[in-house]
């Protein structure tokens, strides 16, 4: 294809995006669009799969049968999200095995929030309320993103996430209204998860390298800082409602902006965790790689059995 022809295709493509048309797997797309989408969708899929681990940590110890079943179903939903996000990613011409390789080798990233430990039951509530809450704010705009398979996957993901968020809030509310020990457990969890949740919405706009291009392709509709403000404004009244205190002495309602002002975020901590020095980076990766390696003989058996069955069928047909 000549340079001029490519330029022409490029223009048509940008016009389609401007008209809010969905781009489908078989449509022509610029290489950079494809790569950026593989990066973001796979990162999202990896986050779902790694995110199963901190919450899975409490399934066997959940305090009641009702909570156990709800948590199990929630973690299973995340596996489901992973599954359809990997499938959406595969439509861009990359295999699930390649994507796993990238995760296992440390080349691909996943959400840093999952590198923090879940040390009490209240952490399960805090993750649902704050982490899923922040995820929804990040993800709702993606339901109308330009790449069709991703947009459609996100519609389903968002529905389930908002259910998880309510469930998490309900765990926190129950604790906050419980005994002094339970309330303390809830407050402690909020103290530990608040700042990492704010960081989850990404680096400040000034430092975000992908924002401009992603806004153009509608892979992003608001900047990280706008999303963070939205999250804070939405969450503070919820904490007040259940009598918990946001661990930020500088948090204050700004009447002029009709928004909360908040204290400085420790970005050093954020970058340290991104670089692999969070409390759980190592054990999360060991768990993922371990499950994959220990499962190899099982996957091999399934392949081999399927081939044998296929051969039998072919023989019968002959």
């Amino acid at each position: 294809m000549s340079e001029k022809e490519i330029k022409n295709l490029d223009e048509i493509f940008e016009q389609r995006i401007a008209r809010d048309e969905k781009i489908e797997p078989k449509d022509w797309m610029p290489e950079k669009y494809r790569k950026t989408h593989i990066r973001q969708i796979s990162q999202h899929a990896h986050s779902e799969i790694v995110g199963m681990l901190p919450e899975g940590n409490w399934i066997t110890r959940a305090p009641s049968l009702r909570r156990k079943v709800a948590l199990l179903a929630k973690v299973q939903d995340e596996a489901g999200h992973g599954l359809y996000l990997y499938s959406a990613c595969e439509t861009l011409g990359v295999s699930r095995e390649e994507l796993y390789d990238q995760l296992h080798s440390g080349k691909a990233k996943y959400s840093s929030i999952f590198n923090y430990p879940t040390i009490t039951w209240a952490d399960i509530g805090a993750i649902g309320w704050l982490v899923d809450g922040a995820a929804i704010i990040n993800q709702v705009p993606l339901c109308s993103t330009s790449y069709g398979p991703y947009a459609r996957a996100m519609i389903r993901v968002c529905k389930e996430e908002s259910f998880h968020q309510r469930q998490g809030f309900e765990i926190m509310m129950t604790l906050a209204q419980g005994t002094p020990e339970q309330k303390e457990m809830a407050q402690d969890a909020l103290n530990r998860w608040w700042w990492p949740s704010l960081m989850m919405l990404g680096p400040t706009d000034a430092e975000s390298v992908h924002t401009a291009q992603s806004m153009k392709w509608k892979l992003k509709r608001k900047t990280n800082d706008e999303l963070r403000q939205q999250f804070i404004d939405q969450t503070v009244p919820q904490a007040e409602l259940i009598g918990l205190t946001i661990p930020d002495p500088e948090l204050k309602w700004n009447e002029e902006r009709k928004s909360y002002d908040f204290g400085p975020i420790d970005w050093d901590e954020f970058w340290q965790v991104v670089k692999g020095h969070g409390p759980c980076n190592k054990i999360r990766m060991e768990a993922r790689v371990g499950a994959w390696e220990e499962g190899e003989w099982v996957r091999d058996a399934a392949m081999s059995y399927a081939e044998k069955q296929q051969n039998k069928k072919t023989k019968q047909a002959v």
């Binding site: 199990l72 973690v75 596996a79 599954l83 499950a291 499962g295 996957r299």
Partner: peptide
């Protein structure tokens, strides 16, 4: 339920969790 998140692949993981959910529901 202890195996949730550690299965040999996602499909099997989801299926084992389904069985756990059924059994705990019966319980």
């Amino acid at each position: 339920s202890e195996l949730c998140g550690h299965g040999p692949n996602l499909e099997t993981d989801i299926a084992c969790t389904n069985m756990a959910l059924d059994l705990l529901g019966q319980t």
